[in-house]
């Protein structure tokens, strides 16, 4: 069971503000999702290799060759907060 406190904690980790009213609703919804996982848990997986990736392939590589970067203006195009070629964020400790 997911509690209201856990919802608030997860919200904090994701930097999403969740107020008390919402956290009740989210807890209920998340618990119903978790319920489905509970059903999956009932399947007997004895002797089955864990799957980390849905595609059954390994070792997709790239050669160590430079393919280039974006121009600085383009890199900063999505922000209004910039200074001397840098992104600018509020003060961070």
């Amino acid at each position: 069971m997911i509690t209201k406190e856990e919802v608030e904690h997860v919200g904090w980790l994701a930097r999403i503000e969740i107020d008390a009213k919402e956290s009740d609703a989210y807890a209920e919804k998340l618990n119903s999702v978790l319920g489905y996982f509970g059903q999956l848990d009932e399947v007997d997986t004895e002797g089955v290799e864990p799957t980390y990736h849905v595609a059954d392939i390994v070792n997709v590589f790239r050669k160590d060759e430079v393919t280039g970067s974006m121009p600085q203006e383009e890199v900063l195009a999505n922000t209004e907060h910039k200074q001397e070629g840098n992104f600018k964020a509020p003060k961070i400790m």
């Binding site: 200074q83 840098n86 992104f87 509020p90 961070i92």
Partner: peptide, 11 residues
């Protein structure tokens, strides 16, 4: 660091 007005980020 204590009177910082902001943070510049270079990726």
């Amino acid at each position: 660091i204590d009177k910082s007005k902001g943070t510049l980020i270079n990726y």
